[in-house]
């Protein structure tokens, strides 16, 4: 009798403790990792029984793709192509270049992967930035234009001096690949940042959408956000002149890194930040650059034709914010 009563007490107590523990804490295993690749810092967080394996597989994939897409890595497809007139493409590079050409055509050339000679001329990717002369820019522009490429199983450049820079979409594609890897491992909740490009898988473990903060272009390192947007299964990618820029010591003028492929100068479209929200991270990455170059009016009319592919948040130099109607209810300004 006595023993039975004590056992009853203990079992009840244990049950209460167990209940309070499991309701208070997320039951799923969380794995986070931070790695340096593609010239930036990346954080990967996944929830689930196989999160550890999934994150490891994602890291391996990042290193594999980095090796393939880098314009500086001497054994990469892109490096070899930039030295030669034509090369045979592997599956990933082929897919990415097809997509790059499609975005180029759709946006009337506002996104163009052949800006590489221009990027080099301005010194992007080095510590040695400079403002080129208008003659140099004019001459370099002759090599810019994805219409001068022929693409099937091989890629053929019209001019040997043409060059490819996949920097504008490679991280978006990498994020898409990681989301697929996570799905293969049965992960249903994950969030990654590839140098500020965010990809969310599913919802948070409590079932609510991921709350993504958008950087205020006026105070990128400040304590205040522009606002937050709640998303499920989306890539959220921002392009802004505040990300990388240099100041010309002679004139004091600031030049940012988003090149207008038509003028050869940093884009001045009246936009200071463009955020694209889409299921397709590669598209989101390419479009964030394209819309930044196109400006607000052209971006809005582009969006009207491609409504079900993406949403966007545009910040103009007068600080006004445009949000596409579909995401207005998920957007909260700070």
């Amino acid at each position: 009798m006595k023993t039975k009563a004590i056992i009853t007490c203990l079992v009840t107590a244990a049950a209460i403790i167990l209940c309070s523990c499991s309701s208070g804490k997320a039951e799923e295993k969380k794995i986070s990792s931070e790695i340096f690749a593609m010239d930036t810092v990346m954080t990967l967080t996944a929830f689930g029984d196989r999160a550890e394996e999934a994150v490891k597989a994602a890291e391996d994939e990042i290193y594999r793709l980095e090796h393939m897409f880098s314009a500086e890595d001497k054994s990469s497809d892109i490096f070899r192509l930039n030295q030669k007139k034509s090369i045979k493409l592997n599956e990933d590079t082929g897919y990415l270049m097809d997509k790059a050409v499609k975005i180029y055509k759709d946006t009337g050339g506002a996104y163009d992967m052949t800006v590489y000679p221009l990027m080099k001329l301005w010194g992007w990717g080095t510590d040695d930035h400079r403002v080129p002369s208008s003659d140099e820019i004019k001459k370099t522009l002759e090599y810019v234009g994805s219409d001068k490429l022929t693409l099937d199983s091989d890629i053929i450049k019209e001019e040997k001096n043409q060059g490819i820079d996949l920097g504008g979409i490679a991280k978006g594609y990498t994020g898409d690949r990681i989301m697929n890897i996570f799905r293969e491992y049965g992960i249903t909740s994950a969030i990654i940042s590839l140098g500020g490009n965010v990809h969310c898988l599913g919802n948070k473990t409590d079932g609510s959408p991921w709350n993504c903060g958008i950087t205020d272009p006026d105070q990128p390192d400040g304590e205040k956000l522009l606002g937050t947007v709640r998303v499920t299964d989306k890539a959220v990618i921002t392009s802004g002149g505040y990300e990388r820029f240099f100041r010309d010591e002679k004139t004091g003028k600031v030049y940012h890194h988003i090149m207008d492929p038509k003028t050869g100068y940093p884009a001045e479209s009246g936009l200071i930040s463009v955020t694209i929200i889409s299921r397709d991270g590669t598209l989101a990455d390419g479009l964030s650059t394209a819309c930044y170059v196109m400006g607000k009016d052209a971006s809005v009319s582009y969006w009207k034709k491609h409504k079900n592919e993406f949403d966007m948040i545009l910040v103009s130099s007068d600080k006004s914010i445009y949000v596409t109607p579909e995401i207005e209810k998920y957007w909260e300004k700070t």
């Binding site: 969030i191 940042s193 140098g195 500020g196 490009n197 965010v198 948070k204 991921w210 709350n211 993504c212 903060g213 958008i214 950087t215 990128p220 304590e223 205040k224 956000l225 937050t228 959220v236 990618i237 921002t238 990300e243 955020t275």
Partner: peptide, 8 residues
Amino acid sequence: KGADIVVK
């Protein structure tokens, strides 16, 4: 900054 992650 009050969000789950910051997009840059």
